[in-house]
Design a protein around this nucleic acid. Structure first.
Lengths: 112, 112
DNA sequence: ATTATATTTTAATAATTGTTTAACAATGGA
DNA sequence: TCCATTGTTAAACAATTATTAAAATATAAT
């Protein structure tokens, strides 16, 4: 289970329009990710501003990066998102995770 | 589907240790909720500080309140949490919600 | 080696956020 | 009515956050 402080950090990282947009873009691009410049172009934000936001997302563990030539590719790290959602649903829904996860309740019912 | 701006607001509301603690406390106390003073005592925070945080949570739609005598009871609003989690899993996991919801994948597999 | 490309870092600044203290409502009981 | 209790609001301040422009780093191409 993620610690509360880490969850706060992840929530804070996503609680900003540009960073939420970055994260969604990265998720849509899968494990290969996207180069910083591509993201800048797509989101019409300056490289310096994005670099600042990448650092915030990285520090929260929500994205990872790898260097390829002179490009830096960023990619979503699903594990932390999974952990965050798990924390929210397991701790924030009185133990009844299904109540917090639309669609899950149906599945549970079908299985029962 | 919740709008991006509303999701950002809800994420920001939860991205603070005291407010995350308030929210979890309220969820654990169900629909009746808790009086502001009880919460203050439990979290060892000043009434004024809490009032400030209640406003943030209310404005994000994460909690509701009702007056009962001279007490004000706050209660979690599950709908917004559901919407937030749905947004994160539906938009942040390349359409494969199961990849973002631990436990759900198993259910999906069993059903298939 | 020099130059161009891709990205990060630094410094400065504006805007937002969280806490504290004190003053202000609103309700209920003596 | 008067007082105590419960909670909110307002003002002031410190701390954090986001943006910009400029300088710095790193890789690649000529």
């Amino acid at each position: 289970m993620m610690k509360s402080a880490q969850v706060v950090k992840a929530l804070a990282a996503l609680a900003q329009p540009t960073r939420l947009a970055i994260y969604r873009l990265l998720v849509a691009h899968g494990p290969e990710g996207m180069a910083a410049g591509q993201i800048a172009e797509k989101l019409k934000a300056s490289p310096a501003t994005l670099s600042f936001h990448f650092k915030t997302l990285s520090h929260a563990g929500l994205v990872g990066s790898r260097q390829d030539g002179r490009f830096v590719y960023y990619a979503a790290n699903f594990a932390v998102m999974n952990g965050m959602v798990a924390y929210l649903t397991e701790n924030c829904c009185g133990g009844d995770a299904a109540a917090c996860r639309p669609g899950t309740k149906q599945l549970m019912a079908e299985r029962a």
